[in-house]
Design a protein around this nucleic acid. Structure first.
Lengths: 75, 75
DNA sequence: CTTTATTTGTCCGTATGTATG
DNA sequence: ACATACATACGGACAAATAAA
């Protein structure tokens, strides 16, 4: 078993994309289904990663629409 | 249907106990099984509440030991 | 206005790893 | 060294919301 859980690896990957500017503020993240296929994991893992990012304030999920990057002052 | 999710209600309840000093820093939180019986929910719900509290830094979960209140100066 | 498609949100159950007795 | 108890991780299913036709 990997030292780091799958959901943490995915969360870190997305966070890196946000920090890199690859995912600009206001941009929509790939849907859970897309991420599920991309990382070949179940919905629960993606759900967990998104939830952590939400709690950290990096992204904001809107029910029925999608997950968007929180407008953060470009340091 | 409750306006707030079950896991959020549980998380708020636990947070209140910490702020009230009912759960002192270093004290162990009730096990998932205890909370599960107390709130009559499944382990997943309790796990979600615990995860949020962990991300917020209020508690700290140690694998194979239990969840403990983080040493935080009560204002 | 009703129906359908897409996406997030929540819930339940199971498997694995670690610490304790 | 073995058995038990607890916590975490993974996977899948169900429900609600929004937008478009």
């Amino acid at each position: 078993m990997p030292a780091k859980p799958k959901w943490e690896r995915i969360a870190d990957e997305i966070r890196t994309q946000i920090e890199s500017g690859e995912l600009a503020p206001g941009a929509q993240l790939p849907s859970t289904a897309q991420l599920r296929a991309k990382y070949d994991v179940s919905a629960g893992v993606v759900r967990q990663a998104i939830l952590v990012l939400q709690t950290k304030g990096l992204v904001e999920g809107v029910h029925g629409l999608g997950v968007f990057v929180t407008e953060r002052s470009s340091s």
